[in-house]
């Protein structure tokens, strides 16, 4: 189990599924952000797993995982600042209240 690539890929898929479910279900911006972060983590697991099992140079997968982490940090920073901005301007952080672009 621990030395089978598919285990990790399925873990990753399932985690991605949960994250996706969260993003789709929730209306709270922060909760949605959590879903996204979960999905990103699923990706990290994927990368690290491939780094171990099938990359010619394991370090590559890890480096990419680090990049994903870095991007996740950036995303969270911007996302949260948006959350704060939204909260300041409308007093709510539910996406149901943010539909001015609707056509």
């Amino acid at each position: 189990m621990a030395d089978d690539l598919n285990t990790y890929l399925i873990i990753s898929c399932a985690l991605f599924a949960i994250g996706l479910f969260g993003v789709l279900l929730r209306r709270n911006l922060v909760a949605m952000l959590i879903g996204v972060e979960l999905m990103l983590n699923a990706v990290i697991i994927n990368l690290v797993a491939f780094a171990k099992f099938s990359a010619p140079e394991p370090v590559t997968g890890q480096v990419f995982a680090l990049f994903v982490i870095g991007i996740a940090a950036a995303e969270a920073a911007v996302g949260l600042s948006i959350v704060l901005a939204v909260h300041k301007s409308r007093g709510s952080i539910s996406v149901d209240d943010l539909q001015e672009l609707a056509g």
């Binding site: 690290v48 797993a49 171990k52 940090a73 969270a76």
Partner: peptide, 23 residues
């Protein structure tokens, strides 16, 4: 478990120590 110690630590440090706290 997958042998990526550094990544694991970074996940803790950044996701837990940074992102979660920011959230």
């Amino acid at each position: 478990v997958l042998g990526s110690e550094f990544v694991a630590l970074m996940q803790l440090l950044i996701f837990l120590g940074g992102i979660t706290v920011a959230m």
